[in-house]
């Protein structure tokens, strides 16, 4: 049975794809034209030559990694505890984890500045280190919806309660259970959450700018005001970076235990008995 070629659907899909891809191609093309009359990576070279670029990138990367660490330490035990002990509170926790999507970052950062300003009992914004801490906390808050969801889904995929009991019946303490059984089984979920956190924090502008931190987001905006070709190059690099993050996430998320991270050969067909 032959079906007619779905002309209309294909056109709509192509139009949709063009909507995303054409500006990207145009930006890429523009980023290559710094030298008049030829295509070159001059703009990219000039970006990498700048000490400021490497400085802000390093700062942002460090802050993002700290945010990942803090987020994992807060979210993993919380999600584990909620699933194990108070499963009925899960919808409430889930709703709370979505709050950062409802409250705009600008409101959040104004709250921080008011709360931890010069007249506060905890004047974090008065010192550089304090402000950095506040920045990392801000990143953690922004990434909680993604981190919590990723970790919670990871825990849903395995039967946390029964696995915990199985480990305990074999003599494992709670800590050993978490380290040897729970953590390895949700590692891919944590890694996806971490990549999401990283890509959100790295280019974050609002909180970073209002706390006046020398980070990647504000740098990107500043460059956009001062230069023509370099911002295009930066934008393309930022896109490429996000995509790499997504590919890595996919690779980790679909990996089964006992497989190598990237499996080039077709996987051995294994019949999984469903029961």
């Amino acid at each position: 049975m032959s079906r007619r070629f779905p002309l209309l659907s294909t056109l709509i899909a192509l139009a949709g794809a063009a909507f995303f891809i054409v500006p990207l191609i145009a930006t890429f093309n523009f980023s290559l034209r710094m030298k008049r009359g030829e295509l070159s990576f001059e703009a990219y070279r000039s970006v990498f030559d700048s000490d400021v670029f490497l400085g802000v990138l390093g700062f942002s990367a460090t802050a993002s990694l700290m945010a990942i660490l803090m987020g994992v330490l807060i979210v993993v035990p919380t999600a584990y505890w909620v699933r194990l002990r108070v499963p009925r509170a899960r919808p409430v926790i889930e709703f709370l984890s979505l709050m950062p999507l409802i409250i705009p970052p600008v409101v959040l950062v104004f709250g921080y500045v008011r709360l931890y300003g010069s007249s506060s009992i905890l004047p974090l914004t008065m010192t550089e280190a304090g402000t950095n801490v506040l920045l990392v906390i801000g990143y953690v808050v922004l990434s909680v919806p993604y981190m919590y969801r990723a970790v919670d889904n990871g825990m849903a995929a395995i039967d946390i309660a029964t696995l915990t009991e199985a480990a305990e019946s074999l003599g494992a303490s709670r800590l050993r259970t978490i380290v040897f059984v729970i953590f390895p089984n949700i590692r891919s979920a944590i890694v996806s959450g971490a990549f999401l956190t990283f890509s959100i924090s790295l280019g974050e502008f609002v909180i970073t700018s209002l706390l006046n931190r020398p980070a990647f987001g504000p740098y990107l905006v500043q460059m956009g005001q001062d230069f023509a070709y370099q911002p295009a190059a930066l934008a393309i690099m930022a896109f490429a970076f996000t995509w790499i993050c997504m590919v890595l996430m996919e690779a980790f998320a679909t990996r089964k235990p006992g497989q190598r991270l990237l499996q080039w050969r077709a996987p051995r067909s294994v019949t999984k008995a469903k029961s």
Binding site: I158, D159, T162, A166, S169, G171, P184, P257, G258
Partner: peptide
């Protein structure tokens, strides 16, 4: 006594094998 110190062997309906281990 907590379960981890009772020296019991338990088999569950849902097998509960550790998925990350051979």
């Amino acid at each position: 006594l907590p379960a981890s110190r009772r020296k019991i062997g338990m088999v569950f309906q849902a097998y509960a094998l550790f998925p990350n281990m051979s």
